[in-house]
Structure formats: structure tokens, C-alpha cells
Design a protein around this nucleic acid. Structure first.
Lengths: 143, 143
DNA sequence: TATTGTTATACTCTATAACTATA
DNA sequence: TATAGTTATAGAGTATAACAATA
């Protein structure tokens, strides 16, 4: 039998293996809505922060502005979000979700919640909260 | 201020953000040894399981056999591992690390451990064990 | 028939440099 | 000078189909 002990002691290895499973399951859960994980995330933050600028969205989700351009283009082309000219800075845009975008997000969010329930099911409920907090703390270690 | 509450409640979002930080830090830690995360991992499992077959290594690390071919080619070309013909199955190979491979791995493993210490530093030591176990449990949810 | 290693390919995600128009 | 959005591009990582040799 093959062992992986020398990697299992690394927290990062377990995080990556868990993320692989979660990513695959979430991608499948969002497929019926023709949303990828990143487009779903952008839609979520745009709905939560109407009027925000692309650079703020990129910073919030830790994705490059350059990569965000095509993502927002995809969402706008599908009529899920709008890029309006900013009233205070003519270089920038104000992002907002359309009614269709909000409706689609509600359904997708329900599917994402069901996915989350599946993923969390093997975890002792008592450790879930400290688990989330530990992961957030690591995520804040940004160089 | 931009908020991300609608995503922060998803465990997967926090797992992904943590993994992004860990991946970047580990990649930097392995760079001096000219190892990528995946080549480091293959070297580790090969040393831990001398004589294993590529298909077993692929299964252990959850990577496609097709992608493993080039990875093993890279490691063999650098003289870190060997692909010997299997004595029991002429289709297959027996993988083993060379002395140079073992020496390089020891140094890289030390760097990876230092990386792990950095990542774990903001986590309450008491929750680390259940945290690891929770992540492993999620990783086992494979469909 | 099924499995092993392999080749080739494509698709996603990520990272970087450089351009333009504004500030 | 610096910033916002944008374009183009390159590199990883990942996924799939098909093949020859062997079981």
C-alpha cells in the first residue's frame, strides 16, 4: 500500500486536496446556471456592493484586473451585470447587477449552499467555526 | 468599504483564499531547489515508497497519468529519480529516487517545513489537529 | 478485454508587460 | 507622475481522447 505521510503532515497538502474536491463539486453545482466559480463570485460581490469599481472587485477577490476584464465582459454580455460610467472618475466604471443577474444569483447561491452543506457534512460541527477562522487567518498572511 | 460576506460564509471560499497564499509561499520556498510543488510531491512519495509504479503515484497524488509522464521525465532528466523496468509487469516501471534526489529532497523538505511553520503560525495550536482531520475528511469526499 | 505508459491536444487559471485615457 | 481599464501573451495546471505494448 502506498503511503503519503511525508506530505500529509503539511497543512498545505491537506488544504489543496480538500480544495480540489470542493472545486470540482462547486463547478458541477454551478454548471446548470452556466456560471464558473469566478463569475459566480464576481456576481456575488457586485450584488453585495452595488456601484463598486472593477479595481475594487479585483482587489476584493484577489484576481488581476487584467483577468477581470474578460470576466466582466462575459457577465455584461449575458445581461447579468452593467458597467456604467462613474460619475466621479471618468476613467472608471460603476458595476451593478441587473434584475436578471440578481435572479440568476439567487438560484445559483442556493445551489452553492447545497454544495457547502455536502462539503461540511463530514466535519464535526464544533470545529467548523475555528476551521473557518484559521483559514481566514492564513489567507490574511499575504506578503 | 467592500464586503465579501456572501462568499465568506462558504467554507470553499476560505479554503481557496488560504490555498492561494500557501501555494505562492511554498512555490517561493521550493524555487531555490528548482522544484515545483508537483515535482516536490512526486519526489516525496517516490522516496517514501521505493519501487512504486507511475500509476500508483498518479493515484496517490490525484494527478492524471498523462500529466505525470512529463513530470517524471523532468525528474529523471535531472538525475533525481530512476525509471527501472518492472520485474513483474513488462508494461510498467519501478520508480526510485537517486542519492542526489534524496539529498535534494532533504533540503527542500526542510524549506517546506519552514514554510509550513509560517503558514501555521496564526492558527491556534489546539485546533490544528482537528483542522487537519477536517480537511482530510473533505478530501475523501471524492465522487 | 483491460491496463500501463505514452502522445497530443485543449481548456482553464494565473501572471506580466505595455498601452490609453484620465487624474 | 500615478491610477483605471484594457489588450495581448505566456505560463502553469488540469482534463480527455487515442495509441502501442502487455496483461
Amino acid at each position: 500500500m502506498i503511503t503519503t505521510d511525508s506530505l500529509r503532515c503539511h497543512l498545505g497538502y491537506n488544504v489543496k486536496r480538500a480544495w480540489d474536491v470542493m472545486r470540482a463539486d462547486l463547478s458541477e453545482s454551478l454548471r446548470p446556471f452556466e456560471l464558473r466559480i469566478v463569475t459566480f463570485s464576481c456576481l456575488a460581490i457586485t450584488i453585495e456592493n452595488p456601484g463598486l469599481r472593477p479595481s475594487q472587485l479585483a482587489e476584493a477577490l484577489a484576481i488581476e484586473r487584467a483577468n477581470l476584464v474578460v470576466i466582466l465582459g462575459e457577465l455584461e454580455e449575458r445581461g447579468l451585470i452593467e458597467r456604467k460610467p462613474s460619475e466621479t472618475d471618468r476613467r472608471s466604471h460603476a458595476l451593478s447587477a441587473t434584475p436578471q443577474g440578481r435572479m440568476l444569483f439567487e438560484k445559483a447561491q442556493a445551489a452553492a449552499m447545497a454544495h457547502n452543506d455536502r462539503m461540511v457534512s463530514p466535519v464535526d460541527p464544533g470545529v467548523l467555526k475555528p476551521l473557518q477562522e484559521a483559514l481566514r487567518a492564513i489567507g490574511r498572511l499575504k506578503p
